[in-house]
Nucleic acid binder design. Structure first.
Ligand SMILES: [Mn+2]
Ligand SMILES: [Mn+2]
Ligand SMILES: [Zn+2]
Ligand SMILES: [Zn+2]
Lengths: 138, 138
DNA sequence: AATAAGAATGAGAACTCTTCTCATTTTCGT
DNA sequence: ACGAAAATGAGAAGAGTTCTCATTCTTATT
């Protein structure tokens, strides 16, 4: 276990934080709810409290290690920060999540904010639809 | 009170539904949570249950009379359907909401969905920032 | 390596938003 | 006006998340 990332983020290297970070880094699934992380850790025999998972993910977000999304469905979804901003397209049938970047959209958003007199701080764009697999099998 | 809109939507013209619809149509604020609607009706002396407000707004949404948004902050926000799709830019300081339409963004989204193999059903785009007033006074 | 001060954890309570349950009331076609 | 079917409202319940606080862990210092 590598505690340097946590140290760098100004967080003490506690076991729960290390476990959660390691899990996020090694999981094949990129986008996960707090509950997902909690259950996965339990199943792999780790002892962590759900409250701690929520707390740690929120701290990771504040430290810029993780990004939080508000997909439809009520739960917050987290993913490891990758340095590069991107948006999401989600399957309403199977929950699949794909990522994309579109510079034209990014530029247009800035333009709209300026026109409306806003100092833009952030934006969120979700496209919903039925993925290729679900179109075939559905 | 005009019950024709409700009838047209296939809903019985009950008092709560009429009151809620009338309120949505006459309110100066376009974007409101269920709680907002509930409180406003109480203050104007109407007797409605909160459960009914939630139920009715959900029915209005299903009937296409109303659109539901998921702004940050946890609550669903509703607005009367205007026929024309639009997106939103919100002030993170004062909660102000402005609307916009950008055909370029709309087109790009369709293109992205197609490229990714999705049959697009919907999308949501929120731009966050600090509005003009809040930049001056904040 | 032992110590001690402060920080973090975990169990469960609590909170917010929303939906459900079900007894009572209302609507509307006859 | 009558009665079947639908809608309402109060409160319970549910989902997701945060809070509380006694206990445990981390880390800087001896
Ligand atoms: Mn992503
Ligand atoms: Mn709007
Ligand atoms: Zn799918
Ligand atoms: Zn503002």
């Amino acid at each position: 276990m590598d505690s340097s990332e946590l140290k760098r983020a100004g967080l003490k290297a506690t076991l729960p934080r290390l476990k959660i970070l390691e899990f996020l880094e090694t999981s094949k699934v990129r986008h996960m709810s707090a509950e997902d992380v909690y259950k996965a850790l339990l199943e792999s025999g780790e002892e962590v409290g759900l409250a701690t998972v929520y707390r740690v993910l929120t701290q990771f977000e504040a430290a810029g290690l993780v990004v939080r999304h508000h997909f439809e469905g009520g739960q917050s979804v987290f993913e490891l920060e990758q340095g590069k901003h991107h948006d999401h397209i989600l399957c309403v049938r199977c929950g699949r999540v794909d990522e994309f970047v579109d510079e034209t959209i990014e530029e247009r958003q800035k333009k709209i904010a300026k026109e409306k007199g806003y100092a833009m701080t952030d934006h969120s764009l979700y496209i919903y639809g039925v993925c290729g697999d679900c179109q075939k099998n559905g």
